[in-house]
Amino acid sequence: MSFYDASGENPMVVQYNSDIWVVEGVNSTARQVLLRNVRSDEVCSVCIDSVKAVDHHALIQSSVAKVAAKTVWRSLILVNGFTPEQIMDAQSRCNIIVRTLSRKFTVQEAASECDLSNF
């Protein structure tokens, strides 16, 4: 397996301990690689034989799939993290407040409509 220096244009991405790491250096004599974890920024030195090269194309495809999955999940939640039910409830309460302020509803009727006490 050939490794690239992380400061170069194409750092080598490897899998170690079921996680993704970037190779930051290689000590060929000691057969050790210096790794930096892409999520935690942890640094460690391990035996070359304990890491597995990651196909960059597969890594990109996996990232695209994860982004697509997050986009689908986010589409289920609307404005500022509220669910559709929460938004409908807020709109209903807003209508009640507007009607109360325009004197079409009494405070007691508004409270009753919202299942609240008027005390």
Rank of each mutant, 00 (worst) to 15 (best):
E109R: 07
R74V: 08
E42N: 10
L101A: 09
L34N: 12
D19K: 01
S117Q: 04
E9Y: 13
R93D: 04
M1Y: 10
N27H: 13
A110W: 00
V72E: 14
K52L: 06
R99F: 11
F3L: 11
I48T: 11
R39E: 13
V79Y: 15
V64Q: 06
V23N: 00
W73D: 14
V38D: 06
L101G: 07
D89E: 12
V54G: 02
G8V: 10
A111G: 14
D55V: 05
Q61R: 05
A53S: 09
C44Y: 04
R31L: 10
S7H: 14
L59M: 02
R99H: 03
D5L: 15
S117N: 02
A65V: 00
N37L: 07
D41A: 09
A58N: 10
F119H: 12
V26I: 10
F119M: 08
G25L: 00
V46N: 08
D115V: 03
R99W: 05
P84G: 02
V64N: 00
I20A: 12
V22F: 08
S117M: 07
F105T: 08
G8K: 15
V79D: 13
I87E: 13
P84A: 08
E113T: 04
G8P: 11
L59V: 00
A30G: 12
S62A: 09
M88A: 05
V79G: 10
S40Y: 08
M88I: 02
Q32I: 05
K70Q: 13
C94W: 07
E85Y: 09
V43E: 08
C44A: 07
A6G: 05
I20C: 11
A58G: 10
S102G: 10
K66M: 06
V22T: 14
L101K: 14
A68R: 03
Q61L: 12
D55F: 03
R31P: 08
S45E: 13
S117Y: 01
G81K: 06
T29E: 15
A6H: 15
A69C: 04
S117F: 03
R36Y: 05
T106W: 10
V79Q: 13
I87T: 12
V54F: 02
I96G: 06
F3E: 04
S28V: 11
I96W: 06
E42V: 00
E85H: 04
S112R: 08
C47P: 07
R39N: 09
V72S: 04
F119V: 08
W21F: 13
Q15K: 15
L101F: 00
E24V: 02
N27K: 13
K104E: 14
I87N: 11
Y4S: 15
Q15P: 01
S102M: 07
C94V: 12
A65E: 04
S28C: 12
I87R: 14
R103G: 08
S75Q: 03
A6K: 04
M88Q: 13
E85D: 11
Y16I: 05
E85V: 04
N37H: 06
H57L: 05
E42G: 04
R93V: 03
V46E: 05
C114G: 00
V22K: 14
R39S: 07
A6W: 04
N37S: 01
A68C: 09
E24T: 09
V46S: 05
F105A: 03
P84D: 05
K52F: 07
Y16F: 15
V98W: 09
W21D: 03
T29N: 15
S45Q: 06
A111M: 09
E24G: 01
